[in-house]
Write a protein that binds this DNA or RNA. Structure first.
Lengths: 198, 198
DNA sequence: AATGCATGCAAGCGCATACTTGCTTGCATT
DNA sequence: AATGCAAGCAAGTATGCGCTTGCATGCATT
């Protein structure tokens, strides 16, 4: 991976998130990279190769971060752990939401995009649900479906990143919203030792 | 709205959801509608006008349905009410998810799409949070933030519709997933009269 | 029977796209 | 000093796009 190739990939990502999938032309990538258009084709043969490389690198770096993110300190308060996890995840997500949004939409019609996105999504859910499963085994959470809990957590954080612009003025900033969510989420999943309620 | 115009709008929607925003060309719309391409321009002047009309009609019909959807029977079990509401909403959502997915992604860069989508999103959240607010006043829910609860509910249902393909094999069908979600969701929001727990 | 209007058809315009070709330039290794 | 290789430059290909123009056709109202 020489310097020129790196410049091209960086430029391709920045054009992709600012102009969208179909708005990402080889002319724009070349201009943003400060190289001649023909250099793109000498290095990567086709535009498709460039975009695939950009997508795979970005998703892999995200997955690497996620692997170390979903761990709940066993001694700490669950709400605090969840809030910390949520903050980290929201940060990771909001830094990539433009790309992810493009991938989800393009993946609906392009199998080659789907093939990259599908395993990433599944690993994400799997990691978090394993984390929840451990909490259940340790008696820290009641016997809910850990996968559904994981999807609940991910879907909320994903949604507030995706809809950020529309949510301004409705709910507060991401931190406030996350706090409210964790409140709702925990009071359901924390094992209630006193069973005599209701 | 004559018959030809209706045929064109129907065709435009079907091309839009199957080919995506940039894949929706006037040639394809004309072919799908069974009319000559030039007829599109005689009726609507521009491709943009056609797409705007398609989008506005579809979102308005969805909003009309939503207005009557978010009502919880006061005497029934909350979990049952929420599940019924969820089923209705998932149905409405999954019938339109291809279009909605396109609008969200295109809206990130096209202000004219954003202007249509933004109020629709806000009305959706407002309606559901009003519904929850009523439950809180009636003492059926504890004092959570109704807007955050609404976003929690909407984000989960939205996510399982959007990610349907990736979730197959991870969590069960939508009904099962919804049941698991409502379990987690309710146990947090139902007012616990016995305050002595934990 | 005459008129008008909706639509079809064929052709084309200007523009942008991904990608190619042939040639030049300049730096780095030998 | 000679060689090779990476990159620039200019031009061009074929394709598809939104949209326009001019003319033909056929149905419905008068």
């Amino acid at each position: 991976m020489d310097e020129t190739e790196q410049k091209i990939l960086d430029a391709a990502l920045s054009v992709l998130v600012s102009k969208g999938y179909e708005g990402t032309t080889t002319r724009r990538i070349a201009e943003a990279a400060g190289v001649n258009e023909v250099t793109l084709f000498r290095k990567f043969q086709s535009k498709e190769n460039i975009l695939r490389e950009v997508i795979i690198r970005n998703l892999n770096s995200a997955l690497a971060l996620i692997d170390s993110m979903f761990q709940m300190e066993t001694e700490a308060d669950q709400a605090v752990s969840l809030r910390n996890m949520g903050l980290d995840f929201i940060k990771l997500m909001s830094e990539r939401i433009d790309l992810i949004s493009i991938l989800i939409e393009e993946g609906r019609r392009k199998p080659e995009v789907q093939e990259i996105l599908s395993p990433a999504t599944q690993i994400l859910i799997k990691r978090l649900s394993e984390c929840f499963e451990l909490q259940i085994k340790n008696g820290k959470m009641r016997n809910i479906d850990p996968k559904v809990a994981a999807v609940t957590f991910i879907s909320f954080t994903f949604y507030i990143c995706l809809m950020k612009k529309f949510l301004e003025g409705i709910i507060g900033d991401k931190e406030e919203a996350l706090e409210g969510f964790v409140d709702i989420f925990t009071k359901g999943i924390i094992k209630v030792n006193d069973k005599n309620l209701r």
